[in-house]
Amino acid sequence: MLGVVVRRVAIGVPVIIGVSAIIFFVLRVLPGNPVQVITQGAPTTPGERHDIIVEFGLNKPIFSQYLSFLGNAVRGRFGISFATRQPVMGEIGSQAMATVELAVAAMLMTVLLGVGLGVVSALLRDTWVDATIRALSLLGSSMPIIWTGPLLILIFSFTLRLFPANGSGTLSELVLPALSIALVTSGVIIRLVRSSMLEVLGLEFVTALRAKGVPEAWIWLRHILRNALVPAVTLLGVQLGGLLSGAVIAETVFGRQGLGSLLVNGIDEKDYPMVQAIVLIVATAYVAINIVVDVSYAYLDPRVRTQLAR
């Protein structure tokens, strides 16, 4: 098991380095002058502008800029924000929790909706309930958050007055943004859980369980669901990418604080250090969570465990 983790980390490192290169160079290709951001549009002399360029190291060759960015990043230093002239890690640290909260809430909702409705759909297969769930899951996963977000606000905030439309901090303010993300990510999970449960239902061991007199509810919960979760967990790991990008959009739509709004502002303001830091941190989290998913996959399927032990 430890071997798996080590191997996955070894694969993850080049992925993260690749991400750092892409974000670093793409930012510098984009039009716009960071010096204007740093001076916040105030009139400056050429000498002052030169001082700023030197202060932020923007005069050095681009590859040496990249290497020093990478070297500092490994030590957890992401530099000074162009916009606020404060260390970016401080600002990220104060905003990160809001995003983690949103991502975790969205993940929980994805699992609840995905597995719950998937099981109901499989149990009541080929009934109107099943048809409705499948239609809704397709609808949910095909609608973007910039559309479902306002729709949810319209229904649950303005009409039903159940949850606040925006803000961050309280639990009730978390519901709508998390739901808007989960609607997208749970659709695929619902359909996968349904189809893999029905696939397991046709296997011989289910007949064998019935033949030994095991109650049907126990067969479904302990055996069929457990077997069907193996592929679902893998997909959940893949869905995490969608979850994180969803969080960025949902924060903007629902006017929440967090890394998403920080990132969007950073891109607007050509705040290189801020954007680089957030992208790199999110990419690292993504890789780390996928390692966790791989390990839990082995936990769910003992056959994988045996293979890994070799």
């Binding site: 011989e204 064998a208 457990r226 077997n227 399927d301």
Partner: peptide
């Protein structure tokens, strides 16, 4: 059952 491995839940 005929296939003793398939007749057991693998997990």
């Amino acid at each position: 059952f005929q296939d003793p491995v398939a007749a057991l839940d693998p997990v």
